[in-house]
Nucleic acid binder design. Structure first.
Lengths: 153, 153
DNA sequence: ACAACCTTGACACAGGCATGGTAAGGTCTG
DNA sequence: CAGACCTTACCATGCCTGTGTCAAGGTTGT
């Protein structure tokens, strides 16, 4: 059979044209990033799409500083909607507390949310933790609220 | 000074309520996933938002099987639009090429698309509202996340 | 003043990632 | 058929991650 590999390269040819080593091409396949089809006798056959993918994969790593695991993660994420949403929701809470919300209000809101967490987390540790840095003072310091990270300006 | 830490826990208290060890809280901070503010004397102060974030971070790892690097990657992705687009474009080529399109044609199309992306990425940096993940202000597509974007625009 | 807390820094260690190499054995082609 | 190519499987290496622990030294509340 010599016609099955039209438009496809074997592993060393693919390596030569994409800049990966044959070893790495096998590795990349093993982690699910590229899946070349196989010839009848088991040879890997890299078609244009695989070659394209491998080239841009290389750019991703070289120019963007990613690693294979990260790309693989993105790939998995693309397929796994629940995890994707979980991540999105985590990210949503992450860097930007809305600037226009007063820190105090926002904090109160968040605290409420967190209260449940604390309760759920259990107070089995209530005696041991010696919470001596608790909110014992409610005096309004003339400056601003306890959180100065937000300029609230 | 005892008023600066209103509504905030020190590291061991935070550890007790979030299920992480103090050691890990420092590590998590070192990789940029959570940034507690500091007291005047340098103590870490974990407010409700940090506690919330730490708790859901734990869920992400325990229930979703992620690791810190992956979450950190998602976070970086949220902030780095060019890389996000590069990944999106890579993913676009990934799972589903319409079976009826000749690989050669498809490759040509992808290359073209890639060209545009590169061009666009080059002259970005003056762009205004870099679209954030949760930035569904006028959402027209329901669940759009960092890695989902590329349905053949 | 003293215990209990906090800080940074370091050593350690298991496991995973990214690579290369090598060996034993099929496949293809001149 | 022989040589060049492919396959899988294993061993090795260097670096990174996640985690603990210990040390020397500030901070804090009673």
């Amino acid at each position: 059979m010599q016609a099955e590999n039209v438009d496809a390269l074997t592993i060393n040819e693919a390596a030569a044209t994409t800049g990966w080593s044959a070893r790495m091409l096998r590795y990349i396949e093993s982690i699910g990033l590229v899946e070349p089809r196989r010839s009848g006798s088991g040879y890997r056959l890299y078609g244009p799409e695989e070659l394209q993918r491998l080239s841009s994969l290389r750019e991703l790593l070289d120019e963007r500083g990613l690693d294979l695991g990260e790309v693989g993660f993105a790939l998995r994420l693309k397929r796994d909607a629940p995890t994707r949403e979980a991540i999105d929701s985590w990210l949503a809470a992450q860097p930007a507390r809305p600037e226009h919300v007063s820190a105090a209000d926002w904090l109160r809101f968040e605290q409420e949310k967190h209260q449940r967490l604390l309760a759920a987390a259990g107070e089995r540790s209530s005696g041991s933790a010696t919470p001596q840095l608790e909110d014992r003072s409610q005096g309004q310091s003339p400056t601003k609220s306890a959180i100065e990270t937000t300029e609230t300006a």
